[in-house]
């Protein structure tokens, strides 16, 4: 519980509290990896069990998925720039790049909702078969994480305006940066093992 503050090094690592939180968050991400790994395993086991519902190959559209992937990958990049700006001590840079990240994330989410609605019109819903249950759960869990992330960024932007860059706010931004990149990595796995394989098979 030491409150000694270091005078050098990145702002978010200067307090004991900051260091502990960041390590804790890394461990949390470890647990998240297990969570998504279990969902991927479930998906793999149930692959092909579409029953009377359409097969993924009939429904997946390369164009939408590519746009979504592009948006999320770019948002990860802009999030990286935002953290870089934070390290340089630029509140404005951090804020603006975070807003860009936010917009890209919202765009991704919009496309995902559109996609889900489209599938359900075509007769593929959470209820229609084991395969579609696992698909919607896997993609939906990722989408839910993105939604929570967006809400979280908004809260942090308000706090940034209120308090500026302090060890505490910068720690919070650093942590959400980790979170956002993690979601990006998960999406890459969803893109390849769900959409690409689903379209081919």
């Amino acid at each position: 519980m030491s409150s000694h503050e270091l005078k050098t090094g990145p702002l978010e690592y200067r307090t004991e509290e900051g260091r502990l939180s960041i390590l804790g968050f890394w461990i949390f991400l470890g647990a998240e990896i297990v969570l998504f790994a279990t969902l991927f395993a479930t998906y793999a086991v149930l692959f092909g069990r579409t029953a009377d519902a359409p097969s993924p190959g009939e429904l997946f559209e390369a164009k939408t998925v590519l746009i979504m992937t592009f948006m999320l990958l770019t948002s990860s990049f802009t999030c990286g720039i935002a953290i870089h700006e934070m390290r340089r001590g630029s509140v404005k840079g951090l804020r603006n790049w975070m807003i860009v990240t936010l917009i890209l994330g919202l765009g991704f989410l919009g496309f995902e909702i559109y996609e889900f609605v489209h599938y359900s019109h075509e007769g593929a819903t959470l209820q229609s078969s084991a395969y579609w249950s696992s698909f919607f759960t896997l993609a939906g869990t990722h989408g839910l994480h993105v939604t929570l992330g967006i809400g979280w960024v908004i809260l942090l932007l308000i706090q940034l305006t209120q308090r500026g860059l302090t060890p505490k706010t910068s720690r919070k931004f650093f942590v959400i940066g980790l979170y956002w990149h993690f979601l990006d990595v998960v999406w890459i796995f969803i893109f390849t093992s769900v959409y690409l394989i689903g379209m081919v098979v």
């Binding site: 086991v45 959470l126 209820q127 084991a130 249950s133 759960t137």
Partner: peptide, 14 residues
């Protein structure tokens, strides 16, 4: 609760 088909006997659940 939401009618998914993961562990059911219907809908090719497992």
């Amino acid at each position: 609760i939401f009618g998914a088909q993961f562990f059911t006997l219907t809908g090719e659940g497992m």
